[in-house]
Design a protein around this nucleic acid. Structure first.
Ligand SMILES: [Zn+2]
Ligand SMILES: [Zn+2]
Ligand SMILES: [Zn+2]
Ligand SMILES: [Zn+2]
Lengths: 150, 150
DNA sequence: TATCTAGGTGATACTGTGTCTCATATGGAT
DNA sequence: ATCCATATGAGACACAGTATCACCTAGATA
């Protein structure tokens, strides 16, 4: 679980990041940050909208989407595409990494891509492709869930 | 470029595959197959709908989606998620592989994942995750496009 | 070849995301 | 305390994808 958005000390990172990019620290943004931090694993926009409406009735639908976009552009949230094709979001740290998503409980584990760089380089070499970006999503059972149902 | 859906001899594979799964070979399905095969690189559902309406006016919107779904389940088409978040489809062969998508011309090159297996295994070992599926999308410039603008 | 029927189709309405516009409100700089 | 660029909320909107349902047809069978 990522803790970058936690309230208290952790929120400093968010504040600093917003500030650095010239964005204001507003009530709705803090509220969304807390909701995201409170979520375990990935969540859909719809789920967050429900949360938001409960936590702060009157918060605008558009604002939630805008905030999600903003956080995504700052690297605090990442969008993932579930196997079924749905879009979801995951809280995460703003460094390059990937997500291993548990198809049973939905939690996601951050994973760095040691080794993947070499694979991509090899692919590029072989196909003449000059790779500028990649997306890797991993699905399976987390250790807890695979222990439960072996 | 994949050619699995080409008309003529290539269509046999589609026919065989539909047949094997107990699906009928219908006019609309053939039409969509040809449109998909005619497309270079990835395409959105909207683009294919335009094509379909031009090639065979009167073809139902729902039918195009249904056919796309069917082909996807047969492995003849794959859904990809562009960096911008849009959904798109790519023609491909029904064997496990990935797509290197050119962000300039949109063409996609099939890429097998030699080496990725090891990376995933290592990830699984380290995180206790038992990996059952993965999705890798690669973005960059194809050899033609990177030659053009170096 | 004529018949039969499960499976497929098209029209249409609908749901659900995500976006846009615009009048109003507010963070934070001065 | 004032000011204004930025953010917000309301609501309309655009678009992807799905559901329903009466009708149609591929292809199996006799
Ligand atoms: Zn992450
Ligand atoms: Zn789990
Ligand atoms: Zn290209
Ligand atoms: Zn693979």
């Amino acid at each position: 679980m990522s803790t970058y958005l936690d309230t208290g000390r952790g929120a400093n990172r968010l504040v600093a990041s917003l500030d650095a990019a010239g964005h204001r620290l507003t009530g709705p943004r803090l509220a969304v940050a807390e909701l995201v931090a409170a979520r375990e694993g990935h969540f859909t926009a719809a789920e967050l909208l429900v949360d938001a409406d409960r936590a702060q009735p009157g918060i605008g639908r558009a604002t939630v989407f805008r905030t999600l976009d903003l956080f995504t552009s700052l690297g605090f949230v990442e969008r993932v595409d579930l196997p079924g094709g749905d879009h979801a979001y995951v809280a995460c740290d703003p460094v390059h990494h990937h997500h291993a998503i548990c198809t049973s409980c939905g939690r996601s584990t951050d994973v760095d891509d040691v080794g993947l760089g070499n694979v991509l380089a090899a692919i590029g070499r072989r196909s003449g492709f000059s790779v500028t970006a990649h997306r890797l999503e991993i699905f399976g059972l987390c250790s807890a869930c695979s222990a439960e149902r072996p």
